[in-house]
Design a protein around this nucleic acid. Structure first.
Lengths: 92, 92
DNA sequence: CATGACCGTGATACTAATACCGGTATAAGA
DNA sequence: TCTTATACCGGTATTAGTATCACGGTCATG
């Protein structure tokens, strides 16, 4: 095994990240945010739906910038998923 | 073209990110930081040397956590590379 | 000189991110 | 009804990240 497949926990963390970004997007369209972040709308959709659970750092950074989200808070709230996933789901 | 190859600017930004992390590591060994971040030492080396210019978000987040670096500052200083790369190199 | 720890490089393997396409569904408006 | 816009989904293509292995270099220590 040379490249460890994503664990269920990592995928759940990815879904949480997607929810976070989707909530921050609010009423704005995917195309608008994707264009502001410099990525394709499909990629943004995959991230938001959790089908791309571990996006690139600069992709998330650009999205957070377009959404006005502090990166540290994003990381912190996603790291919390790895510790207490049930509470995170309950909070969401 | 379905997956745009990394531009030279993105690769340079990756090298800058690597320098940033290496400076933050200071005297500590690669193996120590890699273990603290939960990644392999080879991967950390690739990131530090810029041979993995766009690492995953959670990889950078774990490294920043292990190094005591604020993610927002990392992103900001790397974003500056895309704007004024010469100044960044001069500063480094 | 030998040994070990650390860093660097290259090759290799495998998975995942990103992007584009076509199709579908739903809601709003002419 | 027809059109438009938005979003979801499946498939496909290509590049890149991650991990392991092997080898070489450097430096400190025996």
């Amino acid at each position: 095994m040379v490249r460890t497949p994503l664990t269920p926990l990592e995928r759940e963390r990815g879904r949480h990240l997607g929810l976070l970004l989707r909530q921050a997007r609010g009423e704005r369209s995917m195309a608008e945010i994707a264009a502001a972040a410099g990525i394709s709308a499909e990629t943004l959709r995959k991230i938001e739906t959790g089908r791309a659970p571990t996006p690139a750092f600069f992709t998330v950074a650009a999205l957070a910038g377009a959404l006005g989200l502090p990166l540290d808070e994003v990381a912190r709230r996603c790291a919390a998923v790895a510790v207490v996933p049930e509470e995170s789901e309950a909070a969401a």
